Simulated assay, not measured.
Amino acid sequence: MSPRDRRAREVPTGVPRVLWLPAMVALALVVLPVAGLVARIDLARLPALLGSPASLNALRLSLVTATVATLLCVVFGVPLAVVLARSNARVVRLLRAVVLLPLVLPPVVGGLALLFLLGRNGFLGYLLDVVAGVRVPFTTAAVVIAQTFVALPFLVVSLEGALRASGDRYERVAATLGARPWTVFRRVTVPLLLPSLGSGAVLSFARALGEFGATITFAGSLEGITRTLPVAVYHEAQSDVDSAVALSLLLVVVAVVVIAVARPKALEGTRS
């Protein structure tokens, strides 16, 4: 690095003052609602509310299903992101639009779509019922499917953007040296994806953890089976506001812990 480049890196760029006001407004939009939630907590009842069997079941179910959904996002999302980023087929543009649909569709619409596909009256659900005797709706599997449906685009978008930004020069070099496509994917593409894979998996897990609309539409609200933390918050809000507030705080704390623990590692991998 030349002395001129070194001096340029040492000079701080600063932040324009005009940006501070809208930045603080944006921060307030995120922080103040959470502060209002904290202010509403009944501290005297908080241990009993969070330690109740219903709360613990909802927390356990949310963590398990969100973890499984994130694993499914990785297993299916990585190949899909590679296809979208590296394929030159004309149909890829249409596929990209379809993949992004869960980002813009209301979650309830996604839940209805899953219900009409895998429900007893859906063509795939009817086949599963008749051939294998399997009914997916209103089961824990339905929760995982709903969470995967809404969380998958977050992983795919992150990985596709990373692949497009890195380019394909390394993969081309490996191919010219005689490496087969599977070897190129394993030895070159996957290492390029690892930093973005970490951040994308964190986003997918957080989205799956907070999923409500598609879950309650497709899986219902059965305690210990489909009642995740967001669904439990909605259920408790009908009868016990203090319990709903306590569960909401628990969901916020879990999400913050997950992001705080995993996000710095993902950013560190990106810098390296």
Results as ranks from 00 to 15, higher is better:
167 G>M: 06
80 L>W: 07
37 L>V: 13
74 V>L: 14
149 F>P: 11
100 L>Y: 00
126 Y>V: 04
267 L>I: 15
244 A>G: 14
254 V>C: 01
8 A>D: 09
74 V>D: 02
262 A>N: 07
187 R>E: 01
262 A>T: 06
259 I>K: 03
28 A>K: 02
198 G>S: 04
148 T>K: 08
54 A>S: 13
30 V>T: 05
2 S>A: 10
147 Q>D: 06
119 G>D: 03
11 V>R: 13
263 R>K: 02
217 T>S: 12
29 L>C: 10
219 A>D: 03
218 F>V: 15
14 G>F: 03
10 E>P: 09
220 G>I: 03
258 V>K: 12
120 R>T: 15
16 P>V: 08
256 V>D: 00
120 R>Y: 15
193 L>M: 09
156 V>K: 02
8 A>I: 12
111 G>H: 06
31 V>L: 14
134 V>Y: 10
239 S>P: 05
272 S>W: 09
67 T>A: 11
113 A>H: 08
102 P>C: 01
244 A>N: 12
96 R>H: 06
192 L>H: 15
117 L>W: 04
82 V>T: 12
81 A>T: 10
141 A>K: 09
18 V>A: 10
217 T>F: 07
11 V>I: 08
150 V>F: 04
86 R>L: 01
167 G>C: 04
265 K>C: 01
106 P>G: 06
211 E>I: 09
266 A>L: 08
49 L>T: 14
50 L>D: 05
80 L>R: 03
117 L>F: 07
272 S>E: 14
232 A>N: 01
218 F>P: 10
124 L>R: 13
139 T>H: 09
256 V>E: 00
108 V>E: 06
105 L>I: 02
115 L>T: 14
173 V>T: 00
41 I>A: 15
148 T>Y: 15
58 A>V: 02
40 R>H: 00
45 R>F: 13
71 L>E: 08
116 F>H: 13
261 V>I: 09
138 F>C: 09
169 R>K: 12
205 F>S: 06
166 S>I: 00
189 T>E: 06
229 L>H: 05
120 R>W: 14
97 A>V: 11
159 L>Y: 11
134 V>W: 13
188 V>P: 08
211 E>C: 08
243 S>A: 15
271 R>Q: 11
18 V>W: 10
127 L>Y: 09
114 L>Y: 01
195 P>A: 04
139 T>K: 11
57 N>T: 07
144 V>Q: 09
178 G>V: 08
99 V>F: 05
250 L>E: 10
168 D>K: 07
198 G>A: 08
38 V>D: 08
226 T>C: 11
44 A>D: 15
110 G>C: 14
123 F>V: 10
69 A>I: 13
121 N>W: 11
67 T>W: 06
203 L>I: 10
176 T>S: 13
130 V>S: 14
197 L>N: 01
122 G>H: 02
39 A>K: 15
3 P>N: 12
56 L>M: 11
227 R>T: 06
249 L>H: 04
204 S>L: 05
105 L>W: 01
156 V>N: 01
271 R>D: 06
138 F>S: 08
173 V>H: 00
40 R>S: 02
196 S>R: 05
27 L>I: 08
100 L>T: 00
232 A>K: 02
97 A>K: 03
202 V>H: 06
45 R>H: 15
93 R>D: 12
257 V>N: 07
